[in-house]
Design a protein around this nucleic acid. Structure first.
Length: 314
DNA sequence: AAGACGAAAGTGGTTGA
DNA sequence: TCAACAACTTTCGTCTT
């Protein structure tokens, strides 16, 4: 089967390949497709199927027909670039005035487009590379491109590598869309150290006045749970735990991934499908120690002790 | 032998004088 | 600008299953 056919298959997927359940949930914003019965994340990147083109044929005819590609932030000139023509056009011009004007425009056009836009061209290619590596939805890619554009205009790239600003912009865009990737994942995809990404991320968002809500630990749950092959029951239990934890302010100030990991660890114990601290720590990108600390707090403050004991005895 | 637990020391970032 | 601080990590020894 060629890859096009495979894509078509995926596009029309109606049942879960794992448990053949038809209970499939698509979250278009997050770009995730999840089986509600076994919790499997079937596709964490999907194509936006929404109709872009309208057909005006019936209500008015060809005069309203649109043409051309959709504009996009990920196109270095948004697909709307101008060309002032070449010297061969020059000979078509009649008066001296027109010739002067022609040269002036052409000179400026070249001057402006070369420096900034050449940079953007390279940068956006890199952005697309990283974003497709992380299988991020289109909407995030667009937002990241916008952020990068603004960063360039404000001269924030100076003194920093282009790649790190890209990574920072993508990280910020992910957070804005509430589909956070960890700094570790971003680092792996971009080849930039996670410290550096964090630094540029903070810098860029501060300078551009982009404000971002602290990320919600629950946003990490589906991905982590899927990586651990946990049942949907455990998954929803983990979310439940997170909600209770948030209500008593256990979550503020802590790293969201650590909390998410601890909640998953606890719920895996409760449902008798235990994962080791090591396993959970690895997928969440935190250490066992952090899980232990969060875990202790959860047990103590939420009085979950009994539940865990019970399932242990079984 | 593997996993869980906890102490101690180190890292990078934030905050407030 | 510096020191105190909180969160998290690394490392390592001990206990438990």
């Amino acid at each position: 089967m060629d890859s096009l056919a495979q894509t078509m298959m995926r596009k029309t997927l109606k049942e879960c390949p794992e448990c053949t359940s038809k209970n499939i949930f698509r979250d278009v914003e997050k770009g995730e497709t999840i089986c509600r019965d076994c919790g499997l994340v079937i596709e964490d990147r999907m194509v936006d199927f929404s109709q872009e083109w309208r057909d005006f044929e019936e209500d008015g005819g060809a005069s309203k027909r649109r043409t051309g590609a959709p504009t996009s932030q990920t196109q270095f000139d948004q697909g709307l670039g101008t060309e002032v023509g070449t010297t061969s056009d020059f000979y078509k011009l009649s008066s001296d005035k027109e010739r002067d004007r022609f040269f002036r425009l052409r000179k400026w056009n070249i001057r402006i487009s070369t420096a900034i836009e050449r940079n953007l061209k390279v940068a956006l290619a890199e952005l697309k590379r990283v974003s497709s590596f992380l299988r991020l939805p289109r909407s995030v890619e667009e937002e990241a491109a916008t952020i990068y554009r603004q960063a360039v205009q404000k001269g924030l790239v100076r003194g920093r590598s282009m790649e790190s600003v890209i990574a920072g912009a993508l990280y910020a865009a992910c957070r804005r869309h509430e589909i956070p990737r960890t700094l570790d994942e971003m680092g792996e995809a971009s080849g930039i150290e996670k410290k550096e990404i964090g630094r540029t991320y903070r810098f860029v968002t501060r300078e551009l006045g982009i404000n971002i809500k602290p990320s919600n630990p629950a946003d990490y749950i589906p991905r982590f749970a899927s990586a651990l092959k946990l049942s949907p029951e455990s998954q929803s239990k983990a979310v439940e735990i997170l909600e209770m934890a948030r209500d008593i302010e256990l979550t503020s100030g802590r790293g969201p991934t650590g909390i998410a990991a601890a909640a998953l660890y606890v719920s895996s114990l409760i449902h008798g499908e235990k994962r080791t601290q090591r396993e959970v720590a690895d997928v969440a990108g935190v250490t066992e120690v952090t899980i232990r600390n969060r875990y202790k707090e959860l047990i103590k403050k939420l009085k979950l002790g009994k539940n865990v004991e019970k399932s242990k005895r079984r």
